[in-house]
Design a protein around this nucleic acid. Structure first.
Length: 810
RNA sequence: GCCCGAGUGGCGGAACGGCCAGACGCGCCGGCUUUAGGAGCCGGUGAGGGUCACUCCUCGUGUGGGUUCGAAUCCCACCUCGGGCACCA
């Protein structure tokens, strides 16, 4: 491909800077609220302002930008906003370490990251930026809290909660991963503390439904498992010698109730104190104390030997009439069900192990073969026939579930019940850099919400950040000491701040008009955009942000503030980008800065490379080795678009066919976020163009520049201009594929004999079956492969293959 | 332990409503160009075998079975890796 006039080289640095400046000047990415095109709200999860956009951020955001640009060219008025999840612990830790105020540190980071977004060429409408640490934003965070409080969806309660000793704060269950703090990996411990919660459990059933939203199966499964709905019955047994004491328990296996030979309470169960007999008191108290100090990971280790202590008390099994011992053990969790179980060692592995260790009775009440066995070597978990079960004996255990439940109901000691694994969302944090929870504590009036017209409760700027621990906010007297809004008497402000997941649970409602100061959302503008048509982000938020956002949406809907049931209509998660064996993350110290690659190859090449590495939803190992490939590709496009070629003459039907197939492929791939295969198709087309001439080359090249625009926005703009076209390439319509031009005239017919490929025939498309069969049998190679064996049958798949089966071969 | 997802050249990955395995790219090999380095361009590249020029043959998608004229693709079992949940009664 030599060209006589020397072609100027592709120099990305100058080109990218020039177009970024031009886009800023012309407001190219400022999306109007109304236009002649349908509105389309495309959001990618906003980042935490950790300091810089690393390759992991680019991996999340460049493809999202590509998808947004594609939808624009497809005729939508796309709003693609960005903001910062600006509250949170790292800012506070940086303050402690470097003596920089969290606000200053955060502001610096955001400034730098905005520049980096521009460098990436992201088509963000910055007029709509949302920053959660500004009072204009967190004021509405406080307002939402008050609304939830009004509606009984926020409450304060003392409960055993997760405490991270390193971060010196409590955590929500969702933020404890394998017994460790999600942020710092420190094992968490349980503490009994009075904290603020959001009543997410009230929406458990609705959160299990995903009607009308297009979300990945994986996320739906994760949320479903996390919510953990379990149907069974709740029954209560009386405690022998205690008139009023009843132990309620939940079970999914009422059919095994005649095998309940003892009961177990969680050590934290409120009845423990009441029922423990004097002789057992010291042993029980010691065990309770030991449990309290145990780290959650140790307690939760399923392989750990079961321990427990006898309370000395007895319950009365209402079905057998027996007195059964009541134990406490830490394998029963205070936070699930009622914190108490009927133990059926014959048919539950955990109860079996416990009974064996402490010599408690193991009784078979479900028999797989209907015969009573004297001894059980292990718990039998399957279905069978009820035995040793009084009047229920002989009944299939599946029927027994309902029969026992009904019997319990008749006796007035129980009934059907549903239990969930999900707990209410703990939203208090004992940290400074967050939204102050807008309540005060008054000696006379108790807990008093701050009136709406006194919002925001501003986070005081001046405080001391030390490593001493304790919430710095609690040390700011001017903040803490206040007057009660009700009685004007002296009062104390709440010094806990809101979990930052509260901030992110509603930020997408704020983007359409982030400046409105009379409401959390500008309804008139938001109606044109919401709900989010497409949302993208990391899979790590499957049961954190994505679950919380659904809950807050439903709660706001029920209060009349939203008109839809789900915040995100369509969701796709990019996979994780792994470097050095772990997820790329600043807190793990393995980030790859993009700067070096941008300086050397340009942002367009890096964007393209990240999208080309592999399927976006699968994630990838970061290995920059292949970046040369996308760089070369852009150079080839440059050459095709600007190099000399004879553009006169007849059309090239074959090239036109390649072109229209490529348009179809790239269009379909981009709809589905299959960036890697779309780029491969563009590479193929570009190579074909390099060797072509005539009007087909010209049209094909225009199409390549257009289709490249979402992937590599700068070079596409430059080539569009240099090729003498007017307007921005990004304002053009996406090319349409012509099915007629894409259609094959000739196809390759594969001929198999006894399953082996023996010949390929080039035949006209649409060849009738009989003719295809005949053509195949005429082939010398096929005849040779058949030999002297008789042909048993011939299968023809039109335009694809002919399969010949011989008698011996079949 | 339970529930998902995935195993394809030296590497990243294509093809998965059954039908030409390895698109595209990296790397590597050869050639052209260049004073040289670099860059670029052209060709080759799953393994093995063959009158290796053309045509050709055998094997080949984690392992072992199965269904089918035909399996990377469907079914069963197993192994390995990744992710989620994990004493949830």
């Amino acid at each position: 491909m030599t060209s006589e006039t020397k072609l100027e080289r592709y120099a990305p640095a100058a080109i990218e800077a020039r177009w970024q400046a031009r886009w800023a000047e012309t407001g190219a990415h400022e999306t109007p609220d109304t236009s002649d095109r349908p509105n389309f709200y495309f959001v990618t999860m906003y980042p935490y302002p950790s300091g810089e956009l690393h390759v992991g951020h680019w991996y999340a955001m460049a493809p999202s930008d590509c998808a947004a640009r594609f939808l624009r060219m497809r005729g939508h008025n796309v709003l693609f906003p960005m903001g910062f999840d600006a509250f949170g612990l790292p800012a506070e830790n940086a303050a402690i370490k470097r003596g920089l105020h969290p606000a200053v540190w955060t502001e610096q980071n955001m400034a730098h990251m905005r520049d980096q977004f521009r460098m990436m060429g992201a088509s963000i409408d910055w007029r709509r930026e949302v920053v959660t640490c500004y009072p204009e934003y967190y004021r509405w965070n406080q307002w939402i809290f008050l609304k939830l409080l009004e509606r009984g969806l926020a409450y304060r309660a003392k409960a055993p909660v997760n405490w991270c000793p390193k971060d010196q704060t409590v955590l929500a269950n969702e933020q404890v991963i394998n017994g460790r703090c999600e942020r710092c990996d420190t094992p968490v411990v349980k503490r009994d503390l009075e904290q603020w919660f959001f009543r997410i459990t009230k929406y458990a059933d609705e959160l299990l439904r995903f009607d009308g939203i297009d979300w990945p199966e994986r996320v739906r499964v994760m949320q479903t498992n996390w919510i953990g709905r379990s149907e069974g019955v709740e029954i209560e047994f009386a405690v022998d010698g205690h008139r009023d004491a009843r132990i309620r328990f939940f079970t999914t296996r009422p059919d095994t109730i005649h095998g309940a030979t003892f009961m177990v309470l969680a050590p934290e169960h409120p009845l423990v104190q009441t029922i423990t007999i004097p002789a057992q008191r010291s042993a029980v108290e010691a065990y309770v104390a030991r449990t309290r100090d145990l780290a959650e990971i140790e307690r939760a280790a399923a392989d750990r030997e079961k321990t427990g202590v006898d309370t000395g008390a007895f319950a009365l099994n209402a079905f057998t009439g027996e007195r059964i011992p009541i134990w406490i053990a830490d394998y029963v969790l205070a936070t699930y069900g009622t914190g108490a179980i009927m133990a059926v060692p014959g048919h539950d592995e955990r109860d079996f192990a416990f009974a064996e260790r402490y010599g408690l009775e193991i009784r078979e009440v479900i028999s797989p073969d209907g015969v009573e066995h004297a001894h059980l070597a292990a718990a039998y978990l399957g279905p069978g026939t009820m035995v040793r079960s009084g009047s229920f004996s002989g009944m299939p255990s599946e029927d027994g579930k309902r029969a026992v439940a009904e019997a319990a109901e008749r006796q007035g000691i129980g009934g059907p019940a549903v239990t969930y694994r999900i707990r209410d969302w703990l939203i208090s944090r004992q940290r400074y850099w967050g939204t102050p929870i807008p309540v005060v504590y008054c000696d006379r009036d108790g807990v008093v919400p701050v009136p709406e017209d006194q919002l925001p409760v501003v986070l005081p700027r001046d405080t001391e950040f030390t490593t001493e621990g304790g919430n710095p906010l609690a040390r700011v007297d001017a903040f803490v000491k206040t007057t009660c809004p009700r009685c004007d008497g002296p009062a104390r402000r709440e010094t806990d701040t809101l979990d930052t997941f509260v901030d992110s649970s509603w930020y997408v409602y704020r983007y359409p008009d982030p400046k409105i100061d009379t409401a959390f959302m500008n309804v008139d503008v938001a109606r044109r955009w919401l709900p989010v048509a497409r949302y993208t982000g990391g899979i790590e938020h499957a049961i954190l942000h994505l679950l919380y956002a659904r809950f807050v949406c439903k709660a706001l809907r029920d209060m009349g503030y939203l008109w839809f049931d789900e915040p995100f209509r369509h969701l796709r998660n990019q996979g994780t980008i792994v470097f050095g064996g772990r997820k790329m993350s600043k807190s793990k110290g393995n980030v790859q800065p993009p700067d070096e690659y941008v300086a050397r190859y340009g942002a367009d090449t890096l964007r393209l490379f990240l999208m080309f590495m592999g399927p976006w939803t699968e994630g990838s190992d970061w290995d920059s080795a292949g970046i040369e490939g996308t760089w070369r590709f852009l150079n080839r496009v440059w050459m095709v678009a600007l190099g000399d070629a004879d553009l006169t003459g007849p059309r090239d039907v074959e090239l036109d066919r390649t072109l229209h197939r490529t348009i179809k492929k790239v269009t379909e791939d981009l709809e589905a976020y299959h960036f890697n295969t779309a780029i491969a198709a563009l590479m193929e087309l570009t190579t074909a163009l390099l060797h072509a001439s005539g009007p087909s080359r010209k049209d094909g090249t225009d199409a390549v520049v257009l289709m490249l625009a979402p992937f590599a926005p700068h070079i596409a703009e430059e080539l569009w201009e240099r090729r003498g076209r007017t307007g921005s390439v990004h304002a053009q319509r996406w090319p349409e594929h012509d099915p007629e031009a894409a259609r094959d005239r000739e196809v390759t017919l594969v001929v198999q004999v006894d399953g082996r490929l023996r010949d390929r025939l080039s035949v006209p498309a649409g060849l009738p079956e009989a003719a295809a069969r005949e053509a195949a049998l005429r082939s010398a190679k096929v005849a040779h492969a058949i030999g002297d064996r008789p042909v048993a049958r011939v299968i023809v798949v039109p335009d694809r293959l002919v399969s010949v089966v011989t008698e011996r071969g079949s």
